[in-house]
Structures are given as structure tokens and as C-alpha cells.
């Protein structure tokens, strides 16, 4: 393949991973923005989404399409429930103190990951895509399911945007983010808002995991990359900026795709992690973030 088609392929692959990354990172960003905590277990919610998708689709082997729809609906709900339990019994007890919370979510990371290892096993298992068509370009074929992923991700992002900016719950959430104590004084049940936001963040990660699993197979260690890339995106995009998160997901997703195709995936990740560390040092609020109050 010559350079042109090669670049096209890299951009197309990069776009798909950018959309998946945007959904995952949005979850992390919401949790950080509203609760001011860093959830290191976020990648495990992504992994749980993928693994649960494998389990749920295997319940209806004769109808892959409906099995996948079932997974898309149920897996995020189950993961959200786990998140609520974690919030109630761990994060709430720690009073959301930032450093203790990070240590606790590291603990949570290992508990979830190792529980999946012991129940689901160390194998990587494929999930059949709900639709099966190929787009044939002159240079290479392209799985049509990837377009479905992009479409579903756009829907999720739009729904999140609508939810945050146009609904009553979004208003309550933003009020809590702006000043938790004042919100409490106005009768907003801050604890329940926190639980809901933590669950919502986990559900976004789980949905991204479900979407990605037909492309990538479900494996108990698959949470690490999305976690690190989400950190990269959230930090570069500004720690509480929705728009910044999405723009950064595109920069990272595309550059990751292009560098991976032309050089090596490892080099792409090295560059991304170093970039984020430097951004954090020199522009602590991210490239697009506003001032921290």
C-alpha cells in the first residue's frame, strides 16, 4: 500500500478509537469535574462492560444482534450498580478525600480485575458484531461495524451533552460541581448526586467497553490502556471541560492511530504519556480548561 491509502486507514482507525476514547474519557471527566476525585478503577469499568457483553451475548447465541442489544442495555446498568456500591461503602466513608480516594480506587482496580480473572479466566474471548457488512475500498476492506461504533458514540456524547446542559439533573450536577456546600444548603442531596455521577461515569466507560468488544475481544487486563489514555485526554482537555475532553480525545485518538500505523503502538503511547505529564506541569488546567477556582 502506498502512503495515501495507508494514511487514510490510519485516520479511519484513529477516528474509531477517538470516539470510543471520547466516551470513556467523558466518564472520567464527569467524575473528576463534579466530585473532584480521580478514579483509577475507571478502566476496570470499561473492562467489565466488555466482559459482561461477552457473557450477555453468549446467553442468546442464536441471535447475535439481539444479544448485543441486550449487552448494550444491561452491561452498563450492572456496572453502574457496582459503582454505586463502591461509592456507598468506600468513597463516601473516605469523605471523597482526594489522596485516600486514589489509593482506594487502586484497591478497587485490583479487586475488580482479579475477580474477573478468577471468574472469567485469563482467555481473550471474541464477541460477534451485531451487524456484518464490509465496506470495500479500492485499497482495503473496512468492517462496517466500526461505523456503528462511531454512530453509537456520537449518540452517547450528544445524550451526555444534553443531559448536562439541558436537564434538571444536569443543573443539579453543575450546581454541586460549582459549590457542594452551597448546593447542600439549598437542599440538593449532594451525596446522592455524587453516587449518581460516579455511576454515570462508570456506565459511560462500560458502554464504551461493550461497543469496542467486537473489535478487540474481552480480556481481564484490557482496562489499563483506556484508563491511561483517558487520563491523557482528560488532562490535556482540561479537567472539567466537556468540550476540551472531546477535542483532546480526537487529538490523542488520531495521533495514536497515525503513529501506531507508521511507527509503533508503543512509541505512540510513550509520546502520549510524556505529553500529558508535560501538559500537567506547564498548564495545570489543561490546554482548554478554565481557571481552577
Amino acid at each position: 500500500m502506498s502512503l495515501g491509502p495507508h494514511l487514510l486507514l490510519a485516520i479511519m482507525e484513529g477516528t474509531v478509537s477517538a470516539f470510543v476514547l471520547a466516551v470513556t474519557a467523558l466518564g472520567l471527566s464527569l467524575v473528576f469535574g463534579v466530585m473532584r476525585i480521580v478514579n483509577v478503577a475507571h478502566g476496570e469499568f470499561f473492562m467489565l462492560g466488555a466482559v459482561l457483553a461477552w457473557w450477555l451475548t453468549s446467553l442468546v447465541p442464536e441471535a447475535p444482534f439481539w444479544g448485543f442489544m441486550l449487552a448494550l442495555a444491561v452491561a452498563p446498568l450492572l456496572v453502574g450498580t457496582i459503582a454505586i456500591v463502591a461509592d456507598r461503602f468506600v468513597l463516601q466513608r473516605l469523605n471523597y478525600q482526594p489522596e485516600a480516594t486514589i489509593v482506594a480506587t487502586i484497591g478497587l482496580l485490583y479487586i475488580l480485575q482479579q475477580a474477573v480473572l478468577s471468574i472469567y479466566g485469563p482467555e481473550a474471548r471474541p464477541v460477534v458484531a451485531p451487524i456484518n457488512f464490509r465496506i470495500v475500498l479500492p485499497w482495503f476492506g473496512y468492517s462496517g461495524y466500526k461505523l456503528v461504533v462511531v454512530g453509537a458514540a456520537i449518540l452517547l456524547l450528544l445524550a451526555a451533552w444534553y443531559g448536562v446542559t439541558r436537564t434538571r439533573f444536569g443543573l443539579i450536577m453543575r450546581a454541586t460541581q460549582f459549590d457542594g456546600e452551597i448546593a447542600q444548603a439549598f437542599g440538593i442531596p449532594v451525596k446522592r448526586v455524587y453516587a449518581a455521577v460516579f455511576a454515570l461515569g462508570a456506565m459511560l466507560a462500560a458502554a464504551a467497553g461493550v461497543l469496542v468488544v467486537p473489535l478487540q475481544q474481552a480480556h481481564y487486563l484490557m482496562g489499563l490502556d483506556p484508563l491511561l489514555l483517558s487520563f491523557v485526554v482528560v488532562i490535556i482537555g482540561g479537567l472539567d471541560s466537556l468540550k476540551g475532553t472531546i477535542v483532546a480525545a480526537f487529538i490523542i485518538g488520531l495521533s495514536d492511530g497515525i503513529i501506531s500505523v507508521f511507527f509503533s503502538p508503543t512509541l505512540a503511547k510513550i509520546i502520549a504519556t510524556l505529553a500529558v505529564a508535560l501538559v500537567l506541569v506547564f498548564r495545570p488546567n489543561g490546554l482548554f480548561g478554565g481557571k481552577v477556582r
Binding site: V38, P98, E99, I102, L228, F231, V232, I235, T266, K269, I270, T273, L274, V276, A277, L278, L280, V281, F282, P284
Partner: peptide
């Protein structure tokens, strides 16, 4: 020299990122 410009949670994430870059190297 670089990471100590941050503190608290940012320092945790920066050191984690640098270590990940070192591992990938």
C-alpha cells in the same frame, strides 16, 4: 525538576505517567 512543579493529586498522576512512559521505553 519537572514533576515537583505540581503537587497533590497532579503529582500522583504525573509520576504515574512518567513511570508508564519508562515502562513502555
Amino acid at each position: 525538576l519537572v514533576a515537583l512543579r505540581t503537587s497533590g493529586v497532579a503529582f500522583m498522576i504525573v509520576t504515574m505517567m512518567f513511570a508508564q512512559a519508562a515502562f513502555l521505553t
